[in-house]
Design a protein around this nucleic acid. Structure first.
Lengths: 126, 126
DNA sequence: CCTTCTCAACTACACTTGTAGTAGACAATA
DNA sequence: TATTGTCTACTACAAGTGTAGTTGAGAAGG
């Protein structure tokens, strides 16, 4: 139940559910923004597998179709993703930062904002 | 040739090669810091697959064993890893930063250093 | 009511990755 | 030289994931 590692497609399914609340397979499929949209049954298989893993659940049945809902939060999933990445770097975030900066993916504004966030976070304790 | 996605174990193999230069399978295996060290043949299989993918190469033969070397740089591999992660966040690094801060993985010192790095990076242009 | 559409449920398959065993060649050593 | 250890090369296999087809049931529309 902790959080579970999500594959790319699974993450996209979750993204749809986090944004859209309770959705049918069809709705999830339509929500997936991929250039090449996966077939309905591809999404269906993935959702079923996620159900087996306990990361989504059938919320209710509407007519002849089911409506699914997320069982883990976006924050937990994102954190898991990041922790996995960090494990490649021995848990240190410095190499990560360095790369973001070098490849121009981090602006001075981003850093400023991070700093502000960090200060307020520290004020709150923990 | 670009960079290729590396799995965890593959990354550990590369880590050994990046640090140690040219190594035999045995040496790579011994270098892998995992709590539970994989069997010799597990490492061997992985290295062979990496060879097929063109990310390592047999540098030379010493006695009856081969010595392998890395064909991609640590920087390229790390960048690929990070880009893959960012693709989960729509390419934006802000959510990443926020998580790092919230989970206490980013200190004020880290941010300060990032800022410094960013400024000097910008001075150099690009 | 008959036809058509849409789902659910199941099955299938290929590829990647972690995992490791086996057979045979070769080297080192007693 | 006979024995023992170490490598290479090959084979095997299960889990996870992306991919999608088939079959049958039920809804919707004419």
């Amino acid at each position: 139940m902790a959080s579970a590692r999500l594959s790319k497609l699974e993450f996209q399914v979750m993204e749809a559910l986090w944004s859209g609340g309770e959705l049918s397979i069809r709705e999830i499929q339509e929500e997936i923004p991929a250039r090449r949209t996966p077939a309905y049954t591809t999404v269906q298989t993935t959702v079923y597998r996620m159900e087996a893993k306990g990361i989504v659940r059938r919320a209710r049945k509407v007519g002849n179709f089911h409506v699914f809902e997320a069982l883990i939060t976006r924050e937990a999933a994102q954190r898991r993703l990041i922790d996995d990445l960090l494990s490649y770097f021995g848990g240190r975030s410095q190499p990560l930062m360095a790369h973001l900066i070098e490849s121009g993916k981090l602006s001075l504004g981003d850093v400023k904002e991070a700093e502000k966030l960090l200060r307020s976070h520290r004020r709150k304790g923990e």
